[in-house]
């Protein structure tokens, strides 16, 4: 049994988080506890609040009430760029790649939080900038190589197959060596073979970091996740391991009318 403080230091905790957009309650007292070294799935029908939850976790949306604790620190008021520095990374639904930048440049941007030299000093061409850039470039190249993207380093994303572009987005989120990575529908648009590959990749990643996964493909979710949180209408309706979730009648009920087999 881990002591309480060690547990807190290795977790990302959302406690009773509520988000209101005008009169609409997008998230209603949602709690979630994700750990390093595991894949935590967030599922639910369309409009259940999955992406809103991710937006809260990465700092895009400030919760109306509730608490966020990362590694023992309360982070509710932090901006995305500050969270990125703390080791929380995210991929977007769709791609969000910079279409006019090469694969290498896209991945290098992901390493921005590693820069210590400010923009104005950097403009003067301080020597530190040059070494720093070389370091980030090396890091980016090694992540690119890890994901098997080396042949595409100088290509522009729109000229690449969709599955490769998805990997570029993943590489960009990994270059910081984050402690937690939030993957928003990483499997959308992939073939079955590519999805199996993605599953292996996610399981591999979870050895070194915490993965939060929003995904519609239940096969993938059931295969890789150790814990699953189910949202419906902005509320947590179930929480548990894949077999518990599969057997939960409330979850099946929530998915009625949706083309998903759990």
């Amino acid at each position: 049994m881990m002591s309480n403080s060690i547990m807190e230091n290795s977790t990302l905790i959302a406690d009773e988080v509520t988000v209101r957009f005008g009169g609409l309650v997008a998230l209603d007292r949602v709690s979630l506890n994700a750990n390093l070294g595991e894949v935590h799935g967030v599922i639910g029908p369309n409009g259940a609040g999955k992406t809103t939850l991710f937006n809260v976790l990465c700092g895009f949306v400030k919760p109306s009430s509730g608490k966020l604790t990362y590694f023992g620190n309360e982070v509710k008021t932090l901006r995305p760029e500050q969270l990125s520095k703390m080791g929380v990374s995210r991929t977007l639904q769709g791609l969000g790649l910079f279409s006019r930048m090469t694969v290498l440049e896209n991945v290098m941007i992901g390493g921005t939080s590693l820069t210590k030299v400010g923009p104005f000093r950097s403009l003067l061409g301080a020597g530190a900038t040059v070494t720093e850039e070389a370091r980030i470039k090396d890091l980016a190249l090694s992540v690119i190589a890890d994901l098997g993207l080396s042949p595409f380093t100088k290509r522009l994303p729109p000229s690449l197959p969709y599955a490769i572009q998805k990997k570029v987005a993943l590489a960009r989120a990994l270059v910081l060596s984050p402690k937690f990575i939030l993957l928003d529908e990483p499997a959308s648009g992939l073939s079955n073979v590519e999805m199996d590959e993605l599953g292996d990749l996610i399981l591999g990643l979870s050895k070194n970091l915490g993965v939060l996964l929003v995904e519609h493909h239940m096969d993938l979710v059931m295969r890789v996740c150790s814990t699953i949180t189910v949202l419906d209408f902005g509320r947590v309706i179930a929480n548990g391991n894949p077999s518990e979730i599969r057997a939960n009648p409330i979850v099946t009920q929530a998915y009625l009318g949706e083309d998903v087999t759990i």
């Binding site: 990465c58 995305p80 760029e81 977007l92 910079f98 930048m101 290098m108 941007i109 939080s113 923009p119």
Partner: peptide
């Protein structure tokens, strides 16, 4: 690169730090 990224997609750029 950071300036181009900010101009092209500020939200994504912020997410990347």
């Amino acid at each position: 690169m950071m300036m181009r990224a900010s101009a092209f997609a500020p939200e994504v750029a912020r997410l990347l730090g």
